[in-house]
Design a protein around this nucleic acid. Sequence first.
DNA 1: TTGTAAGCGTTATCAA
DNA 2: TTGATAACGCTTACAA
Lengths: 337, 337
Amino acid sequence: MNIGEIARLAGVSRSTVSYALTGRRAVSDKTRKRIERVIAESGYRPNASARALKEGRTRTLGLVIPPASRALTDMQLGFVASVVEAAARVDLDVLLSPSGGDHDRSFERLVTGQRVDGVIVMEIRLEDARVARLQQTRIPFVTIGRTAQPDSLSWVDVDYAHLIGRCVHHLADLGHRHIALINRSQELVASGYGPGHRALAGFTEAITERGISGMSLCCADDAPAGHAATRRLLAEHPDVTAIATINEAALRGVQRALDNAGLRIPRDFSVTGVVAQHWAEDFHPPLTAADVPAHDMGSRAVELLLERIAEPESAARHVLLSPPIALRSSTGPARSG
Amino acid sequence: MNIGEIARLAGVSRSTVSYALTGRRAVSDKTRKRIERVIAESGYRPNASARALKEGRTRTLGLVIPPASRALTDMQLGFVASVVEAAARVDLDVLLSPSGGDHDRSFERLVTGQRVDGVIVMEIRLEDARVARLQQTRIPFVTIGRTAQPDSLSWVDVDYAHLIGRCVHHLADLGHRHIALINRSQELVASGYGPGHRALAGFTEAITERGISGMSLCCADDAPAGHAATRRLLAEHPDVTAIATINEAALRGVQRALDNAGLRIPRDFSVTGVVAQHWAEDFHPPLTAADVPAHDMGSRAVELLLERIAEPESAARHVLLSPPIALRSSTGPARSG
DNA sequence: TTGTAAGCGTTATCAA
DNA sequence: TTGATAACGCTTACAA
């Protein structure tokens, strides 16, 4: 079933069917009705490949995700879901590419095969081979997260530096003088993962500004690692009375370790950070934290990408989100003594 | 940059370039070398739409996921990741469609726009409008999960009935005489969610077989709901000494409620079920459970789909997975008295 | 071993 | 208001 068949059944030419379908040329009511009836009866829908070939656009966006081998975090999942949903709202489809470094076949198909009109890349490193590759091509793209040289690119990111800084100030205001930052995993930070670096920078700056003592440690993205890291922290730095973290997956382990040490939250110990709302609310007691607006980020990314597709030569735009810290129940005055 | 341009630069015809690219016809070493050099220099890659139009296949699979409004569970995420990765291994791309019921534009594009060579649908209901729609079309498809009439369809599923039955037998062997099943949410079960129904069926059958007492309850997919459900359970059914569950997201709440009630696992109370390995290992103590092989399921689904695409008329195939129950530390002899 | 040309299903230009 | 027809970029008979 193709457009010629519909034209034959409706007794008109192929172009008339096409125009009736797209509305790009006036078609008399009578013939449009007839065409619509035939289409409804036959269940015809235009062939996407033919249309893409002719129009020079695919009505499809590419989304580059971390390879499945590295399990996606809750937050990354939130991005994927929100990107897909935002795209669907404007009748765009989303092609997924699980690509880590460079030289990935699926990634190459995406960027050079004219399969998509634009690309969204997530889990950006400060130096990112995929971004470099995309810049070589002419394809419009937007990143979730930003590289070390972000000015010329369109991106949406969370202001980890600022937010972790605010967490530190909040804790300092409550009288805490020894604060620990629990960062993401060693490898991730070592590989130039932006949020890890920027969180540390914001932490250090705020600690310095307040003239208090801070220490930071890396921790793998799971509960057992959080448990181990916190235990070690309590043992080696007994004067620490508060934790700020961007590692949501470690939270459960952090909680268990504090529990086991007989420390009650927030009476004996405070915990705060930047994590998905989901995790903040599941914490016990609910975590005072800046909720990463994953859903918002996905739709903003789609928005920016559509702009770049529409006007490839327009100036790059940035969205740096800084959600408010939701005051819940996991932070309190520092235990005196 | 298109194939004609390459042909011109290499001083050959377009067909020769095409043959050099696909290898479907012999090309002399000398001209192939020349063509390859030109291609490498120009960064040319064939236009995917043109190729799809001509060949009648898109080298793309569709994956229908639940709409983002309903947050994806960890397990669903595992399916998505494994499907995408399995597809990438055989150089296939994956188009995502977030579709709930019927009449979804993105879903319609997928099934009737010839955008994909085949479709994988997840989160299947016993009566599923999407499956019905797919059956009307000629497009090959595979489901993760199965409907009430699964014989004629290709699917991969977990044998929840059998596995929950085995959990019950395991608990009964340990002397438990009053066991509760914590199911998924009321709405999900009411809407005909297969695992919910089959888990209950397997539970009931095993309970009957062992002549012991069982009770089942629904519970929303989050920790607070698990907490509330377990509290109520303990209050209203004080003789229950063990829980079997398929609701991984509720586990943390279950744990907290048992904790608060002063019940130690496994000394005072046993917990087991069918959940993603991730959750079982994060439980404290590690959960004796059948680990849902999400990763395996995704690649099996791709495998079955490729078969159906290659031979649309071949008989439907089913994969019913029944992973072993991993004996960890959350089940023990029933407290006597 | 290579080239010519038809055709995949659209859209859009040019006529009528 | 509509129709014929030429692309879009590719693959693949059919010739040479």
